[in-house]
Amino acid sequence: MYDQLTDDELFAEVARSRSAGEPFGGPLGALVQRWGRPARYVISKIQASYKRGSPADADELFQDAVGKFIDRGLEQFRGVSEQMPGKSASPKTFFLRIVKHVAIDFYRRQREDLAPAPSDPDDVMEEPPSEVARAVETARRTQERSEAQELYWAAFARLQEEHPKEAGAWDLYHHKDVEDHEECARLLNITVANSYKRVSRAQAYLRLYLLELRQAAEGKE
């Protein structure tokens, strides 16, 4: 019976039943089931970022996120976008943000638990040359990533100035928690086809800007 309802209509039914003290497990279950696939995609991105995790984690994290959505999210959701004031936010985007933070917290705790305990300074032995070389190489790569990020954000700032519509679509699709063109189009009040076009054009502009910025940087060296 819920298949014919949109996400917004289903969420409205959840809110109505909840405020009336009626059972709302049916519409809520149908709603989060729809969001299972994009939620697991968000979790996979976090797993890749932290270089840990397994498919089994995805089910557990998804269930944790559903629990938080029920416990606090239903009360906190206001339907207003935090990233784009004045724009409405969908319950799906709100839920996926919860999924993201649940996954980040989980793997951050894992990383902290696995970190070696600090050594007594008096017991620290001199590192062998191989370790020193590895540390130097790690530092070099870190600096390169930092420089690449600076170039990227400089290119994106230029995109925002010269092509604000394309920049807006790119920002939603790649920087925010919007994982598909349908949601991107809804937030921007455009067609799905236009969402694809804007993101594609933004990518082409960014490649050009990055190339120009790299050439300019190499010319200064």
Rank of each mutant, 00 (worst) to 15 (best):
E127M: 15
L206S: 03
A135Y: 12
R198Q: 04
R16I: 01
A56K: 14
Q33T: 15
Q63S: 02
D57G: 08
R111Q: 08
V136H: 04
H163R: 09
Q203A: 05
R78P: 15
D180Y: 00
D8C: 08
L206K: 04
R134G: 12
A117I: 07
F69I: 15
S49F: 14
Y209L: 01
P164R: 04
G219I: 04
K87L: 10
S81P: 09
L31G: 05
I104D: 03
R16Y: 04
Y2D: 09
L5H: 02
G26D: 10
E179I: 14
Q83S: 14
V124E: 02
T138L: 15
M84S: 12
D105P: 08
D71I: 15
R214G: 05
Q160E: 11
K176I: 09
Q203T: 01
V199T: 00
K68L: 13
G29L: 04
S17D: 09
V14L: 05
D59V: 11
A185Q: 06
D113V: 13
F94D: 00
F106R: 13
I104F: 08
G36S: 13
A56E: 12
D120K: 07
D8I: 07
D177I: 14
T138K: 15
G168W: 05
A204M: 05
A157T: 09
D122C: 14
T191C: 09
R109F: 13
V42A: 06
Q83F: 14
D123H: 15
L159R: 04
A193Y: 14
F62M: 00
V178E: 04
L206E: 00
K100M: 02
T191E: 02
A20P: 06
F95H: 03
Q83E: 12
L151N: 05
K220L: 14
Y173K: 15
D171S: 12
F156M: 11
S119L: 11
Y107D: 04
P38E: 08
E131D: 11
A154G: 12
W170N: 00
M1S: 13
E166P: 04
A48C: 06
T6G: 00
E60Q: 06
F24R: 09
S44P: 08
A167Y: 06
E75V: 07
E166C: 03
E182S: 11
F62T: 03
K92P: 02
I46K: 01
V66R: 05
F94R: 02
S81N: 07
P38V: 09
E137C: 09
R78T: 15
D177T: 15
L61H: 03
P91R: 06
V32P: 13
K68Y: 14
R214K: 10
A20Y: 07
N189P: 13
E221W: 04
S146Q: 14
K197S: 07
Q149T: 10
Y152G: 11
E137T: 08
L5Y: 00
P85W: 00
K197A: 05
S54T: 02
G36W: 08
R134N: 10
L188V: 12
D8N: 10
P91S: 02
L5E: 02
S200H: 11
R16P: 10
E218C: 02
A217I: 04
R18L: 05
A167G: 03
K68R: 15
A12E: 06
